[in-house]
Amino acid sequence: MINVVSLTKDYKTGKEVVPVLKGVDLSIKAGEFVCIMGPSGSGKTTLLHLLGGLDTPTSGSIQINGKELTSQSEKNRTLLRRKEMGFVFQNYQLLPTLTVYENIIFPLHADGKKASPGDVDELLNAVELKGYENRFPHELSGGQQQRVAIARSLIHQPSILLADEPTGNLDRKRSGDILDLLAKFHYEQKQTIVMVTHDMFAAGYADRIILFKDGVIEAEVKREDEDYARFLARFMA
């Protein structure tokens, strides 16, 4: 459950204050697969970072599973993120000195937990990286790295998965595989997924598409909606 009310975020560049989010209201049900689309610079990544507690908003409220995020200390936000959230970053963000295996179990390790070999194995199979456990990130292809990042975001079975352009730099085949993977986990574990993407081919995977423009939600469409596709097409043009 994610509940966002009147969320704003300003950035200061020098003396200038740049408003990036200008009052976002958003509610995402548990288990929903939501996609956020919008032009470049509209504030999608900023919103995702705020949802993940990686940054603090200028004003407004964010509730994650009933807990107000903005009033938490940095430490508590870390704890919440560690327990409830998985993050997939646009450019993998793997830790170069850790092996594939160590990268994947990192969130568990940060939480002071032991990884059960069974779970890791299953995940490795799912992302088709069995046999690559002891490689270092620089010994992997881009797609493999992306899959490690996804495995890493899921190892601790988070209830919320935040994915920022998880298919950003991938070709059609690879991005399809990644999306299938996400869909599979979503289907099996019913976590809430918030995915930022530019890619129509990814958007079709979501139950709901939120359209972002200039720091506000311009519109949103549900899969069930009659004019779903037409509306989107209009919007994208």
């Binding site: 993940g52 990686l54 940095e74 430490k75 870390t78 704890l79 993120r81 560690r82 993050f87 970053f89 963000q93 793997l94 830790l95 170069p96 000195t97 990192f106 969130p107 940060a110 939480d111 890493r152």
Partner: peptide, 16 residues
């Protein structure tokens, strides 16, 4: 710096 940022985003605290 960046790696440390990643670790923190994955749940590492300053203490870690």
């Amino acid at each position: 710096n960046r790696e440390i940022g990643i670790m923190k985003s994955l749940g590492y605290t300053g203490g870690h």
